[in-house]
Structure formats: C-alpha cells, structure tokens
Design a protein around this nucleic acid. Structure first.
Lengths: 347, 347
DNA sequence: TTAAGTTATGCAAACGGTTGCATAAAATAC
DNA sequence: GTATTTTATGCAACCGTTTGCATAACTTAA
C-alpha cells in the first residue's frame, strides 16, 4: 500500500483548531469535552477521512487488542470440523464487539524451543489466549500461570481442571438426553459405542448414559458398552462386537459421528433395519447427518455459544485484573430424525 | 498480565555496554557488527530474557506484520468445512515462516457502514488480505484497488478475474480426471450432478467433464447433466430425475459431497447397487467419504497447498512493491475407493 | 607518517498516539 | 465582588524501536 497518505491526529487537531490531546480524548470518550469542540473535531475527522493508527495506539496503550486462538494442526477430525467452525464465529463476534482482533496460531515449537504461542505472548502480540483442550498440555499451562497470562480452554481439560477457566458442552447432560430420547421412542436395550474412550468427552457422555439408565430404572449392561481406540474401523466393528452378546441391543448411542457412520454401514450390511430393529443416535450434528440413510438423530451442540462464552470469559479476564476461574457448560438438545423413529411417527 | 517486567532494548544495551541502536541492529541483522559486540549483546539478551516488543517494532516500522483471512459467517457448508480447514494450515505455516501473524475476520459491516475488513486496513492492522471468492464482491474489490491494498482471492472469483491474483484447485482438470477414472473402470454412460450449478467451481467441473468425454470419443448427453439450486434434496432428487431418461447412466459424478450422499441414499432406496449398477464419484475428500456405504471414490483437492500458495503470493505482493497478478491452479487427484469399483478388483 | 577509505558504533529524532499535570475559563458559593 | 469549585483544554513527556547522520577507530595506500 503506497497510499501512505497518513493523516494523523495532529492534522485533525490543526484542522479543528485544537490540541492533539483533545482529539485523542474525543476518540476515546475520555473526560469531558464540550459539545461544540466535539462537533468540530468529528467534522474534521470526517473531512480528512481520518482513521486512528492502531499500531500507534496499541503501542501507546501497551496492549495488543488481540487474542489468539490456537488450532491444532495435527487434529483435523475431532476439532477442526463442526466443533471448531462454529465456535470460531462465536469467538469472532464477541471479540469484535469488544474491540479485539482474533489471531490464529498453531502451537508448534519454533526455532529456539519457544512455542509459537509463547512467542506471541512474550512479544506482546496478544492479550489473551483461547486454547483447545487437546492442546492444553501441562507444560504450556504451567508457563501460562507463570506469566500470569489470561487464557480460557475450549473443552474440558485433563490438567488443571480446577485451576483454570474452561467452557465445554454439557456432555453428561447430553448422554442423559440421548438415553431419555431413546426410551421415550420405545427402545429398551440401549448400547453405547465410542471410538475414543479415553477422551473426556466420551467419558462424560458415557457417564450421562449410565446415570440416565439407572434413573429410568434400567440396568446398565456392560456388554452394551463398547469402544475401540482407533478411529478408522470404529462403529463398524463395534457394532459387530456388541451384537455378539446373547441379548441384542435395540438401540445404540454413538459418542461421535464417525462411529455412527460405521454403525449405519454395518447395520446395512448385516441386514439390520434402522430404525425398526435398531435405533441409532449420535453426538455432534455434522451437516452430513441430515443426509445419511436414514437421517441421523443427533445430540446437537451449540458450539457457537461455546465460542461466545469462551471469548467473553477471556475478555473479562483480560480487562478486570484478577478474576476467579469459572467452568461453563453449554446444554445440548436432541434433533430427532428418522434413525430413532421406532414407531414410524410422522416427523 | 501484571508481569510487565518490561525489559527493553535499553536494558539490554546497558547490560552489554553499547547503545540501543546497536542492539537493534543485531536484532535485525542490519549493517556490520563486530563478532565480539554481537556476542556480548546476544549474551545480554539471554541473561535478561529479552524479547523485542512487537507493538513498538510494528509502530516504528509502520507495518502490522499481519494478514487477514476473511471468513464468511453465512456460509458454513461449502467453505467452512474441508476446503477451509486445511487451507488455513497452509496459510498459517507460510505466514509464520515469513514473520506474519494471521488474523481472522468476518466481512460484516460495522457501525458507520465500514466493513470489518476495510476497518482493519484503514486502521493499519493488516498488511494484506486473503479473501474467499464468495466474499469477493465488486464493491469490496474496487475498494481494495482504490486503496492499492495487497490481496489474494481463495478460489476463482466471479469479478475482476483477470485484474486480481487468485488461487484455486484445477476444477477442469478434476472433471477430466473423474471422467477418465470412470471410463478406465469400465463405465460407459456417465452423468454429472450438481447442487450448485451457478458456482464457478461447478461450471468448471462440468466443463472438464465434457472435455474429457469428447476427447475419449464419447457423446455428451445433456440428459445426463442435472442440477438443482437448493442444497437440501440435492443428489437424491437429481438421481431420480436423471433416471427418468430412457437410457440409464451407469455412473454419476457429483460436483459436491452433499449431492453424493443424496445419490447414495437414493440408490439404496431404489435398489440400485453401487458400484455394480451405478458408479459414484464425488468431488472434495471429506473425511466422511471414507465411511459411506460403499466408501466413495473422490477427487481429492490439496487445500493445504492452496493455502500455502495464497499466502506466499500475498506476501510477495506485500514485500515487493508492485507485482503482476497471477492465477494459480492446484492439480487434483483421484482417490479410488469401492464406489467405482465396477469389476470388483482388490483395492 | 599522513591522507583517504573502511568499518563499527553512538546520538538523537522520529513514528502517532496517550495521559498527568497545569491552567484558563466558566459556574457556583459566600 | 471575590473566593472556590468545576469544567474544558493545552503542553510536553513518554511508550520501545528504528534509522539517518556523525564520528571514532582502524586499515590501507602513498
């Protein structure tokens, strides 16, 4: 951009016949300014098409007016998809409304053993950080505490769960909703499948499942709970495994979408009719879930709100000096589709 | 962060017994510095754990060292998914290697009728812009030209195609590959379905389809080309429509994933066996394509490279004064899966 | 040995805002 | 009418780097 026309605050001041500091105060709504002067200055700014140079402002103020959103370059399934996308919009909206820019970074180590995140902090390029839980490793969190740097974790973390602020969807409640929905639809023997049993979200979904079953007076049958640690054959193999039990389940809850797709496929190959012989319900409302055969009933998670929450908690942390940590859970809801429509009701 | 320990370049200078300007020159590898002095300074920086304050640097240099990536908040299907995710990583990597941060923004209007993008530019928060083609509206592009602001469009744009730099995947070549693959697999009557016929990518894919058919000595049968402008029932209805023709196709190319899912579903309902009676091939390698029933053969697009290209062209534009525009196309490749395996070969 | 050229470093102004302090002007109190 | 408070504005220092210019120290050429 050669167009460094660079109309500065001084030009505006001269034009309006006031001091630069007065212009600054108008821009920032600081202290009292007479209506007359304010009008003159606004006029001058308009005439000169003045925009404050944020490089100078940030420098003078000593804050970057920016927050970083870390993204995990290794993980392009779980996080990068639905979960991530919409929460970015939530984060972005809140950030923008509060005058913050959002800056993305992978957490990779750079030359010199400093991670890109740490570098951003030390170079003062950001005022706060939103960190997906998969990236919330011990070492990094400790560093953040040490620097007393504001951050919020997106998703329940494994480490420092109580000492840090985080937001997540309410996976336990989601598990309960799933069970209740299936029971209400008339299913009686409900299985739970997961391709990622160690993940906290899976564990919580499972916990909700067990709780709701118990509460509804059903037994928790361990044979109905299956998981494998590879993503690829998930669902497909899991379903076959569960179907080895003597008393077959009549519905399955899948902790993630990939599992659900595997299940649908296995069911189709095994000649099991969905939803008549098997109800299928999955977490995470991928757009594609609407187009499967049959369309999937899902636990929908409002990741937009998740992002909004994360950003607003972070900004509060940045702006008020010290703030207590908080953990926020966003409720889920069921989107009922054909895959759990046991009785053939009109949807 | 209360820890405003703020060790500045002056502290380093004092410690090393030199002037601040000398330290600055070491940091920036400017002009000649004696090995001895350099060593002393490096030592001092290490001892004091000094990191240059980038707010001050950016201010002094007059550039933000940042590029914006615009994301379209309205479009959460086409762009936000696969296409977007991986290209972000490509952009991020190149940006980081060149010392640029990447900043995301939706292009929404803010108060005062200035779009968030324009605001970033006028406030000097960014040095360049990567703009998805869906957001490359006339008005904005004109503004960018007017400001002489460096930008690169992600995806072939409708407007100012020749006057601007853009990168895209080679959709024509992709269409050709798709046809050739199907022919090679033994299919003879190939249809083309699209849920978004007006989109340039669809048109190009269709053009490649026609070209390859002609080149291979097949007729282009207009009855085999179908499209609708709604996303929802795409594929499903399209397939049924195409199947109304007297001579049925034995393979379909879907210009997008949603269409492909609809096709698979319709085929299953209509009792048409895939791939025996109908080959199905889709563009865009969504992770889910591996788990459909049967797994989908896809035209894979290397969006990571796309991002890399976009970023490096942009950075060249920023750093070298005036640069000619360039249009870059990234080749695609086929990932062959069961859905086009007519002869039951081992995959 | 001195002049001319080279190399390494320091000095100080500049970048464009913000803000504490000082003060003039206006309003209120007595 | 003067003293006091309030309100509105200006002055100038400062934020931490960068960089043009000046110069000291050292080489090389004669």
């Amino acid at each position: 951009m050669k167009n460094k026309s660079t109309v500065t605050i001084k030009d505006v001041a001269k034009r309006a016949g006031v001091a630069a500091s007065t212009v600054s105060r108008v821009i920032n709504n600081k202290s009292l300014i007479s209506e007359e002067t304010r009008e003159k200055i606004m006029e001058a700014m308009r005439e000169l098409n003045y925009f404050p140079n944020s490089l100078a402002r940030n420098f003078a103020n000593g804050n970057a007016c920016a927050i970083a959103l870390a993204i995990d370059a290794n993980d392009n399934t779980t996080f990068s998809n639905v979960f991530f996308n919409k929460s970015v919009f939530g984060i972005e909206t809140v950030a923008q409304n509060n005058g913050y820019n959002i800056l993305i970074t992978n957490g990779k180590e750079e030359k010199g053993g400093v991670s890109s995140i740490e570098k951003l902090i030390l170079e003062r390029k950001i005022d706060g950080l939103i960190l997906p839980s998969v990236m919330a490793k011990r070492k990094l969190i400790k560093k953040l505490f040490e620097l007393d740097f504001p951050f919020v974790i997106l998703g329940e973390p494994e480490n420092f769960k109580l000492e840090s602020s985080w937001v997540d969807i309410n996976n336990i409640q989601g598990g309960e909703l799933a069970v209740n929905h299936l029971i209400q639809k008339g299913y009686k023997r409900i299985a739970f499948l997961s391709s990622n049993p160690k993940a906290i979200f899976s564990q919580n979904r499972l916990a909700g499942y067990k709780q709701a079953l118990t509460f509804a007076g059903f037994d928790v049958n361990e044979k109905y709970i299956a998981s494998c640690e590879e993503t690829l054959p998930a669902g497909y193999n899991l379903l076959k495994e569960v179907f080895k039990t003597s008393s077959l389940p009549d519905a399955v809850i899948c902790s993630d979408n990939i599992t659900a797709f595997g299940v649908l496929r296995a069911a189709s190959e095994m000649g099991i009719s969905v939803p008549r012989e098997l109800g299928v319900l999955s977490f995470d409302n991928y757009p594609i879930a609407e187009y499967t055969n049959p369309p999937l009933t899902v636990v929908d998670v409002d990741t937009y709100s998740l992002g909004e929450q994360a950003a607003s908690i972070l900004i509060r942390k940045i702006e008020r000096e010290k703030e207590v940590n908080q953990q926020t859970l966003i409720s889920t809801r069921i989107i009922s589709r054909e895959s759990t429509n046991l009785k053939g009701e009109l949807l």
